[in-house]
Amino acid sequence: MNHFNEIEALWKKSGASPLPGITEIMSKAEKNKKQVSRKIRIQILCMLLVIPALVYVAFSFRFQYGSSYAGMILMALCVLVFTRFRLQQYLFLKQIDFSDDPHELLKTFKKFYARQQWLHTVGSFWYVLILNIAFALYFYEVVYLAPSTTQVKIAILVVYIAWMLVATLWIQKRAHKKEHRKTELIIEQLQQLQQSLDA
């Protein structure tokens, strides 16, 4: 191992680069903590504000069809379910302990990314689909009772359905594919890391 001694000697010569100031690190840590929690709080607040807005609309206008109310209930459900998942993800990340055993941490991250992959693919497919159905149910009455010709109503319907199909089958599918590849790569790398630690 004589050669390795040369490497050791060289490593010792590498010295130390100037370090960032301690106050800089502490203020970054505090800023980082505040920023993340503020961001998530704003996101959740914005999502939850949709609920009183829907309640206001439901009680302020006298809708004639049950479909309008069904649409609003579905929208509220979508918002609640989305908020729940967002909050769950945030709490999961917050609980991760970086001083944990690396094997355990890699397992935890694998679980997180697997869950995220499900959310970004299956979960978000159903979210967009149900939200679109909710809007369709809500706007059914508006379009049906609108003082316009049948052709205009059919045109609106066709445009809406076409948009729904494009959004769910094309735009979303592309986004899912990209997201799937990204998380798949991360999971694969985490597996490799785990294997190299175990080997």
């Binding site: 970086f98 944990d100 690396p102 991250f109 790398q189």
Partner: peptide
Amino acid sequence: YRIAVNTCLHYWRSPKNKT
């Protein structure tokens, strides 16, 4: 050291850092 090792191993995989 554990925090340092875990930070290095996870850095590129974090959603906020570019992979």
